[in-house]
Nucleic acid binder design. Structure first.
Ligand SMILES: NC(=O)c1ccc[n+]([C@@H]2O[C@H](COP(=O)([O-])OP(=O)(O)OC[C@H]3O[C@@H](n4cnc5c(N)ncnc54)[C@H](O)[C@@H]3O)[C@@H](O)[C@H]2O)c1
Ligand SMILES: NC(=O)c1ccc[n+]([C@@H]2O[C@H](COP(=O)([O-])OP(=O)(O)OC[C@H]3O[C@@H](n4cnc5c(N)ncnc54)[C@H](O)[C@@H]3O)[C@@H](O)[C@H]2O)c1
Lengths: 220, 220
DNA sequence: AATCATTTGTTTACATTTTAACAATGCAAA
DNA sequence: TTTGCATTGTTAAAATGTAAACAAATGATT
């Protein structure tokens, strides 16, 4: 077991390692080299070895890493064997897309509930997930022991809802609204589509793209 | 004008500065201090000043930064005054949500076209955006001079489509599929929902969250 | 006019993340 | 048996990103 927090980027890559490794396992592979795993994610073998070192996974010199064992270890680190439950708060266009996505693509997250304030959605079940009235947030989150929330309400409700989520016992929120949040007792991950697009716009302006390509090349 | 590429994180923050500053402008503000701008995004004033230094914007000592001028400058840096056009490739659940989002929330991006292979969508117009047959990708991208693409096709089509996009003249792609891409002649930004959620899962495990909170506190 | 408080701009230091370097290992083949 | 080679694990260096420190400026106040 690891005593310290892993770097954020390492955790992100662990998630990706697990996903591609599961596919390799299904294809009948049982071991993999760092450079082959790296190739699947377009990163360097060094980074793979370093990440695996950090989680204490050790391979064999001639066969590489044991895929099944590695998947299991990553699961213990990220999921704690699926103890955490997830809720979607705001079942609009984006929330519904995410609900379908999470339910249809098998993954380790236990999506458990959705919340909305629209009477047409409250009480219905979508892909097996019940949609509750947002007034019941605290009640349901406490009863179901939900610890992770996906925030997809209109931006002007985001601050209020995020606080109600943490007050109900949610420990981690992923915020897809453009509102900038600040939480004291939970881990917060924000993702802003417009910002992401504007970043692409900046780096793909022809002049900048040239500079960027030169930068990349000079590093190889 | 700036001769060098800006750091990626600075560009991301510039996008957010512009958005909150536009709101301040609408509220009748004309100048803002670094610490007030910082508060709006929950970052430090130092970071604001450093970012603005990098883009060569200079404030006045007693009034702070001129909001209108700053918005204009950020626009010139990110958008080149809106010269770049955007296409959505794959108009499914996520693609459609993004289309509506981009059209309904005023922003500087010129969404111009969408592409799909589903006959029920091809030829229709959604929120003013025409959906073309994906076979016409090259033709339309070239004719309209589209330079930015949002990739939301099924994962197993992502590699092929990304190459067709860059072959057609697209210079920047934001990839929402879980497929890991590698492009030689374009800027690539990937966003993986599952990875993002699994990261939240890791850091919000009670033991890790405690470590994380201590870490944050020790930095203040 | 001199002082004070405030805020910017810039340099310096710190932290995180990535990449490089290389010793250690162990199997295969000569 | 010994040499060679491919691969891991780890330490060191470089790059990137963030925060702190502080001088310079400016206007308000005494
Ligand atoms: N649609 C997208 O592709 C997209 C992309 C990026 C970000 N976003 C952001 O995600 C959020 C949702 O976007 P959307 O397009 O799905 O909007 P939407 O209006 O379709 O969905 C919002 C949903 O939240 C519900 N709601 C309102 N108040 C609520 C409350 N207090 N508690 C619970 N539910 C509540 C509404 O009934 C609605 O179903 C917005 O903040 C938007 O800016 C959307
Ligand atoms: N739905 C979500 O919330 C969500 C979240 C994260 C990531 N994703 C990813 O985004 C992608 C799309 O997800 P979705 O839920 O919208 O799936 P979807 O099946 O609803 O949408 C895919 C769309 O792409 C179209 N398509 C198929 N082949 C195409 C081609 N060659 N060219 C153009 N269009 C083509 C399909 O007709 C369909 O309309 C998937 O890769 C998925 O993994 C989805």
């Amino acid at each position: 077991m690891i005593a310290e927090l892993l770097p954020e980027r390492t955790v992100e890559r662990l998630s990706k390692y697990r996903r591609v490794l599961s596919r390799e396992l299904e294809n009948g592979m049982d071991h993999i080299y760092s450079h082959d795993l790296a190739k699947l994610l377009h990163i360097t073998p060094v980074q793979v070895r370093r990440d695996l070192m950090l989680i204490g996974h050790t391979g064999t010199l001639r066969k590489g890493y044991d895929i099944a064992k590695l998947i299991k270890l990553i699961g213990e680190i990220i999921d704690c064997s699926g103890i955490q439950k997830v809720a979607i708060v705001g079942l609009g266009q984006l929330g519904m897309a995410l609900l379908n996505y999470l339910q249809n693509n098998k993954n380790k997250l236990h999506l458990t509930a959705a919340f909305d304030n629209n009477p047409e959605k409250i009480g219905h079940i979508f892909q097996g997930i019940p949609c509750y009235d947002e007034q019941q947030l605290k009640e349901v989150v406490e009863k179901e022991k939900i610890t992770i929330g996906i925030l997809t309400v209109p931006a002007n409700k985001a601050v209020e809802m995020s606080h109600r989520m943490t007050d109900s016992g949610i420990l981690g929120i992923i915020n897809y609204t453009p509102a900038s949040l600040k939480l004291d007792n939970a881990f917060l991950e924000e993702y802003d589509v417009i910002t992401s697009l504007e970043k692409v716009a900046y780096f793909s302006k022809p002049f900048n793209l040239d500079l960027y390509k030169k930068l990349i090349q000079s590093q190889q």
